[in-house]
Design a protein around this nucleic acid. Structure first.
Length: 516
RNA sequence: GGUGACGUGGCCGAGUGGUCAGGCAGAGGCCUGCAAAGCCUCCUACGGCGGUUCGAAUCCGCCCGUCACCUCCA
């Protein structure tokens, strides 16, 4: 069976195009990572998930993948033009906000980097081959800036080094921001360097010996501009021609526009063929913001502390939601379309993820029993996987892919008695579905740590045993026909967040997934 | 003002010319001591107005609306 053609929307051409790797069957791409000055929120991870799904789709059609995803651990000015020696950047602001928590800016960056990697694993994102840090590549960035000055693409002023936009041909092509007047016409609250040649020119290096992080350069102590790090690290690890570059839609301009200009100037030719951008998500119909109360970090939802009052009760009271459910929720919208993240969708996703897990459990049991009988599932699940993969190859159509995959779960549920052969087909399908979508079971062992300790008291031994006592009492009552007492015990369990299911094989229980 | 994306049933969300998306919620049924879970059945929509066509959610034009970016942001 030939693999479907992998197609992605290319911001550069405004078209959905077949992805044709430079090296045959080897996709090499760069993903813009986070600036580590706070816990990552669910919107950040919508973008990182896109990169993960590109990787998984490419692997599913048999390609090799090399992915580079950076950690930006250098603070950059909140306004790129602002060359005020006392100017703050977002990492510096974070340090001032949390000064008692961290001894210095490096500790802060380290803490949020570790938290980010934990969230990454919890959401079942695959590790990039290379995860470079900006602070470890400042020398490389300096060399690139020097080269740009030497080749006439950059110039120095009293306050720093600027890239000369005029020195490249098609600046603005990616974003459509082609007119210098447009940039000036925009109402911007910006302090400009009067020595800048062109309002579009952007900083490559800032002279600022007082900055919290500073390095020595030919222009004195200072620190690099934001855009240069991705150009340098991308080309260092992927060469001066690679396939694809991902990021959030906000990075189209200025970040990626500037990166293209730098790349072109350093390499002498275009470096990246496809640019893929993930749209911002909204939460409960509004732009996510702390003031609206709809701002969720990943750990707010998967491991809330008991005192995280901004976390919705329905999430906090059950000790956080399955991280795979968060992943599943984010996949209910295609990366390129507006997506409204709702708690309702999150709880629905939790149920769906559990259906996968239940199906996987059933399959495990059937594998152990290994009953004789025909394989009713192999062909059906094979066809379902085809459709799932086709949907993913169609510009990462995750809603269609998850819908197709859910039919596979249904097929397993519908089968009354799973033969050993059917179970092997089902196991194979679950594995392939998990490899492609990552929603069945986590590939990471590490549990995410929480700041305030887990609220998951139900997994604690003493509570678990009291549940068992209640279940035994109820079973006894049922055997004796005392249904009123049995139902009262069931109500008690429900109040504890336990739902009880009487099956032909005995009574089962699990934690309730609350709705809304 | 510039640029781009989008508008599908109560809700979310697939679908680029003619035949089923799927899910959630809701209704009925099977199962159950009663439930729960699961299964089966039902609920049939494409912002507005024109146009092309035998036929349009789908193509074209105009209009209305939503969202985003335009040097903080994934």
């Amino acid at each position: 069976m030939p693999s479907p053609t992998f197609r992605l929307y290319n911001t550069l051409t405004h078209e959905t195009e077949p992805v044709e790797p430079i090296e045959e069957e080897h996709l090499r791409f760069y993903s813009c990572g986070p600036t580590v000055y706070m816990y990552a929120h669910i919107g950040n991870f919508r973008s990182f998930l896109t990169a993960d799904l590109i990787r998984r789709t490419a692997e599913a059609i048999g390609w090799d993948v090399t992915n580079v995803s950076n950690i930006t651990d250098v603070g950059h000015l909140t306004q790129d033009d602002l060359v005020d020696p006392g100017g703050e950047d977002k990492m510096q602001r974070a340090l001032e906000r949390e000064g008692e928590r961290f001894a210095n800016i490096y500790d802060l960056a380290r803490h949020y980097t570790e938290a980010f990697l934990e969230d990454w694993g919890a959401l079942n994102l695959r590790e990039p081959e290379v995860r470079p840090r900006a602070t470890e590549h400042v020398t490389d960035q300096l060399e690139a800036v020097i080269e740009l000055v030497e080749t006439g693409h950059a110039y120095t002023t009293e306050q720093g080094v600027y890239f000369s936009v005029e020195s490249v041909d098609d600046y603005g092509h990616l974003s459509g921001n082609t007119e210098a007047q447009q940039l000036e016409a925009t109402d911007r609250d910006v302090v400009e360097d009067p020595e800048k040649h062109d309002p579009r020119d952007f900083a490559l290096w800032k002279h600022d010996p007082d900055h919290l992080m500073h390095w020595h350069s030919p222009w004195g102590w200072g620190y690099p501009g934001w855009h240069i790090e991705c150009s340098v690290m991308g080309m260092q690890y992927l060469g001066d021609r690679f396939d694809l570059h991902t990021g959030g839609e906000d990075l189209i301009f200025p970040h990626h526009e500037c990166e293209i200009a730098q790349n072109q100037s350093l390499a002498g030719h275009p470096v990246v063929n496809y640019w893929v951008h993930t749209r911002f998500l909204q939460v409960e119909g509004e732009k996510m913001s702390k003031s609206t109360g709809n701002f969720y970090t990943v750990r707010d939802l998967i491991a809330p502390g008991p005192n995280d009052k901004h976390v919705p009760d329905s999430v906090r009271e059950q000790g956080g939601i399955d991280p795979l459910a968060l992943r599943y929720t984010l996949m209910q919208g295609q990366y390129r379309k507006p997506f409204n993240f709702t708690l309702d969708a999150l709880h629905t996703a939790a149920r769906h993820v559990r259906r996968y897990q239940d199906a996987a459990e059933r399959v495990e049991e059937a594998l152990e029993a290994d009953a004789a009988g025909p394989d009713h599932l192999g062909d059906r699940l094979g066809a379902i996987h085809e459709r799932t993969l086709e949907a993913m190859c169609d510009d990462l159509n995750t809603p269609a892919a998850t819908a197709a995959a859910l039919e596979g779960v249904k097929a397993i549920e519908q089968t009354d008695r799973l033969s050993g052969d059917a179970a092997r087909s089902a196991r194979n399908w679950l594995d392939r579905t998990n490899a492609l979508l990552g929603i069945v079971e986590s590939e990471h062992d590490a549990e995410p740590a929480t700041d305030d300790g887990s609220q998951d008291g139900l997994s604690a031994g003493h509570l678990s045993s009291s549940i068992n006592t209640l279940l035994e009492d109820r079973e006894a009552a049922r055997t004796e026909g005392e249904y009123a007492r049995a139902d009262a015990i069931r109500d008690t369990l429900e109040a504890l967040g336990i739902e009880v299911m009487d099956t032909p094989d005995g009574t089962e229980w699990r934690r309730t997934i609350e709705v809304g």
